[in-house]
């Protein structure tokens, strides 16, 4: 197929998108399907060196006494925002969540640490 069919950048598409505003211009081409063959091109763009660094820092649970078990056990495999962005859940749902971390993902959380974790989750993100 013709290489000219291939827009190189999104600005092109932005223009096409704007051009499509007048309702009458709407084109209904039903034929377009599946992958389209295009000519081969040499490899491009190994990214710039500075493209490989993530922003530093991450949110952590507060240093309060009652959040300690979560600081210890719940920000090892993922950041605390995995938890702080969750909705209010029932006690049962939070218990199931902590159990999932232990049984499915192998979280090394001793059984006697679980009640305090669940208490904290219910107090801060529990359904009334």
């Amino acid at each position: 197929m013709s290489p000219s069919r291939r827009p190189k950048s999104s600005p092109t598409d932005a223009v096409a998108w704007l051009a499509a505003f007048p309702v009458g211009l709407a084109v209904v081409a039903l034929a377009a399907v599946g992958p389209v063959a295009v000519p081969e091109e040499p490899p491009r763009n190994p990214h710039a060196a500075d493209a490989w660094t993530l922003p530093a820092g991450e949110p952590v649970f507060p240093a309060d006494e009652d959040a300690m078990p979560l600081r210890r056990h719940c920000q090892l495999c993922h950041s605390s925002d995995y938890i702080s962005t969750q909705p209010r859940l029932s006690r049962k749902a939070w218990e199931a969540n902590v159990e999932k971390m232990r049984s499915k993902y192998g979280a090394p959380i001793p059984t006697n640490a679980v009640p305090a974790i669940v208490e904290y989750l219910v107090r801060n993100h529990g359904t009334p």
Binding site: W17, A20, F21, V23, G24, A26, V28, A29, L30, A32
Partner: peptide, 15 residues
């Protein structure tokens, strides 16, 4: 009105 058809897997514009 439906806009440009970029293929059956694409976003389809409407206006």
């Amino acid at each position: 009105a439906l806009g440009r058809d970029l293929g059956r897997f694409a976003f389809r514009e409407w206006t």
